[in-house]
Design a binder for these strands. Sequence first.
DNA 1: ATAAAACCTAAAGTCAACTCTAGGTCAAGC
DNA 2: GCTTGACCTAGAGTTGACTTTAGGTTTTAT
Lengths: 159, 159
Amino acid sequence: MSYTVGEMAKMLNTTPSTLRYYDKEGLLPFVGRSVSGIRMFTDTDYEWLQIIGCLKKTGMSLKDIRKYIYMAMQGDDTIDERLQLFLKQKEAVEKQLAEINETLDIINFKCWYYQTAKEAGSTEVPKNMSLDEIPEQFHAVREKLRRPNKAETYEQKVE
Amino acid sequence: MSYTVGEMAKMLNTTPSTLRYYDKEGLLPFVGRSVSGIRMFTDTDYEWLQIIGCLKKTGMSLKDIRKYIYMAMQGDDTIDERLQLFLKQKEAVEKQLAEINETLDIINFKCWYYQTAKEAGSTEVPKNMSLDEIPEQFHAVREKLRRPNKAETYEQKVE
DNA sequence: ATAAAACCTAAAGTCAACTCTAGGTCAAGC
DNA sequence: GCTTGACCTAGAGTTGACTTTAGGTTTTAT
């Protein structure tokens, strides 16, 4: 079973131009052509493109993705290299996850902050609350947002 | 307590150029200047920059961040708008989290795949394994990677 | 048989977010 | 007082990842 660039683009929820661009950049050396020069994508190519999409989503550059594709094209000699790449990528993605969770904490704090401000009619209310008026889950976030340096030595603020 | 652009850049783990660029783009209308025109960042500015960094990390464009800053500068009339913005951003980030978790599944599968290939000396081994030879946790991922389109969608295939 | 739609390439254009350069001013240490 | 390093602006340049355009060929539908 094979697909044209337009069909494959639809299956991947992208555009033909993007796939041609990837091809031009050397990311799709596995894609075959018909006698008249038209790209013929297979189900296996679809799998490759899913992997490419996965790596891209986790922030890998097209250049690095190309390196991986080249490795794979070289065959079994590069198995370990590829394993290392995915192990490294796993680390990177786990770090990303942790970071996004941290920013989610900040966003949740801000939601509470503006919810409170809305009820009170002014941002001065949440802004000036002392820690014991704030839900505990937000204590750490507020401290982190305020402290210009991470040293916990002292934190006197006088204006 | 006030800081120069270089000091603030260090505190935020960025560069002076980036901060000047943000300023030029209108993201930092709150930053004051000394008599001689030098930017003077305060602790409050640091908090703003943390929020900007948070929004940026979750993929918000500088343009949209500027909109938010402008809202905030307008005062209490925009509290609800800002609340809505953060609620929307919360949704977006939760979706991001789900997506990253999905790609992490794929990466974990690939780690297992290449680990298995390494032990066997060839990618043919994991590639040709039947589902019951594969750890259950990877069943769903492998199916997803392989299936060119969902069962319910109809898509004509060229042969 | 012909028109429309989908394919092809090469090359130029776009966009966001920086990053660097040039030319100059200001402030701290010797 | 002088040097050095940090600051300033305006504007040009860079990078990555597309996207569009122009000009042409092939496939599909009527």
